[in-house]
Each structure stands twice: as structure tokens, then as C-alpha cells.
């Protein structure tokens, strides 16, 4: 049958198209009407099903499918829960790390500030005294200033400045013909010593019998102690790296 049809293709194909056209022609019969109604129903059903599929919820699914979906969701939930816990742990770790880093930073900054005041690399301000030594006849030797600095330190001065030179651990004094050399900088009278600390203690230390003011007066000069609420010790020192001294490595 197939072979026969293949034997005369063009006529047969044309024949088939004609037959299809004939069948499609409107012939008012009950069966034809019924067929059309069925076609309408089919089109309607197709669209309904397509729409249904695109909005399908869970209620149309069978029990085993629901069980599978439930298991999937359960598994997903567990996995996501694990992930949440993991991320929370790492968040806590990072937070605690950043807090401890902040604390370390703050502590380091405090140390830097304290050491800056101590080493003379940072300006300092606070209550204290200003000691003024009028010496028009240049009778005051460097030992007097050295005594004064020593007394101030003894009384708890935290930052000291002579003239425009900061007094630190390495400060040295020397007599010159024009005045007193403080760490190589010439300071001429009147000598102004500014010290930050407990003002009353410092002032008392300057005025003890046989102390700095007494010595200054004995050599014929004038010493003046003034208690000030805010003494500015603003002379700075540049820190040089020690050439020979090396810190001893701290043993752990």
C-alpha cells in the first residue's frame, strides 16, 4: 500500500489535500456540529490546562510528589540552617576580632601618647608652674638650672621645657659665655622653665629653704614661680634612632 502510494506521488498528494479540503467544508450535519463542539471543548481545555500548569500550586500534586517536595524542602532547610549557623559563627569571630583589634589600637595609641610626652616628641599641656629666672648679670650657672630640673622631676613633673628646649632623658646642660647651652641650643636669660605636674607640689619644691629660688637669690639673680592652670610645653624633639643601643629582645 505504501509502495503503491509512493509510485504516484504528485497525484496522490494533491488528492489527499483535496480530500482534506472536502472534509473541512461546512456540511451542516449533526455529527459535524458535534465534532465542532468537541473541537471547541478541546481548545478550551488546552488553554485551561496551560493556564493551570503555569499557576500550579501544591494542591494538585499527588501524595508521593508532595512527600518528595517536602523532603526536598526539609533538606534545603537543614542545609540553609547549617549555613546560617556557620555564617553566624564567623560573624561573631570577626566581630570579636575587630573589637580586640580596636582595643589593641586604643592601648597602642595611649602608649604612643604617653611615650610622646615622655620622649618630647608630642606637645603637652596641663596644670603646672612657670619658673622665671631674671639674671641680668649672668651669675646663674648651669648647675642651678640642673638643680631646678632635678627638683621639678623629684616633685613629679611630667613634662619640662627650658626656654625653647624640651627637657628629656638625654638633655644635657653646659655653660657658655652668652648663656647656658641646653642640649646644644643656647638659652639666654631670662631663663623660663615650664613644667607640667601638680602645681602646688612643684611650686613648693622650688621654694624650699636652700632650694632653687634660694640659690638663685644667693648669686644675685631673681627667681619667680608662677602657678598656671594651663602650661604649654610645646617644644618638640626629633627622635633619632640610637646608633649603638639596641633593645634586648623580650623572651617569650
Amino acid at each position: 500500500m505504501t509502495a503503491e502510494r509512493r509510485g504516484s506521488p504528485p497525484q496522490d498528494a494533491r488528492h489527499a489535500w483535496a480530500r482534506l479540503r472536502r472534509a473541512g467544508a461546512p456540511t451542516p450535519s449533526r455529527s459535524n456540529l458535534l465534532a465542532m463542539l468537541l473541537a471547541v471543548a478541546l481548545g478550551f481545555a488546552i488553554i485551561a490546562q496551560v493556564r493551570q500548569t503555569s499557576v500550579q500550586g501544591l494542591e494538585t500534586l499527588r501524595e508521593d510528589e508532595l512527600v518528595r517536595i517536602f523532603a526536598d524542602v526539609d533538606q534545603d532547610g537543614e542545609r540553609l540552617g547549617d549555613e546560617v549557623r556557620e555564617l553566624q559563627t564567623s560573624l561573631e569571630r570577626l566581630e570579636s576580632r575587630s573589637t580586640s583589634e580596636e582595643e589593641a589600637q586604643r592601648a597602642a595609641q595611649e602608649r604612643v601618647d604617653a611615650l610622646g610626652v615622655l620622649a618630647g616628641t608630642a606637645p603637652a599641656t596641663g596644670p603646672g608652674i612657670v619658673l622665671r629666672i631674671e639674671d641680668p648679670t649672668q651669675q646663674v650657672r648651669f648647675t642651678v638650672l640642673l638643680d631646678a630640673i632635678q627638683e621639678l622631676r623629684d616633685a613629679g613633673a611630667e613634662a619640662i621645657q627650658v626656654g625653647d628646649v624640651r627637657v628629656v632623658a638625654g638633655t644635657w646642660l653646659e655653660d657658655t659665655t652668652d648663656g647656658i647651652s641646653v642640649s646644644g641650643s643656647l638659652v639666654q636669660p631670662p631663663y623660663v622653665i615650664r613644667a607640667i605636674g601638680d602645681a602646688n607640689t612643684l611650686a613648693g619644691a622650688m621654694q624650699i629653704p636652700g632650694g632653687v629660688t634660694a640659690t638663685v637669690r644667693r648669686v644675685g639673680a631673681q627667681a619667680d614661680v608662677e602657678i598656671v592652670d594651663r602650661v604649654e610645653v610645646d617644644a618638640l624633639l626629633t627622635v633619632t634612632t640610637p646608633q649603638y643601643a639596641r633593645p634586648v629582645p623580650s623572651t617569650p
Binding site: R21, G24, A25, P26, N32, A35, M36, L37, L38, A39, V40, A41, L42, G43, F44, A45, I46, I47
Partner: peptide
């Protein structure tokens, strides 16, 4: 033809 129209109509 009629059924095709019916389908389109549906």
C-alpha cells in the same frame, strides 16, 4: 475546516 475553526474558537 469547521473543526479547525472550532479549535481556534475554543
Amino acid at each position: 475546516m469547521i473543526p479547525a475553526i472550532g479549535l481556534a474558537l475554543g
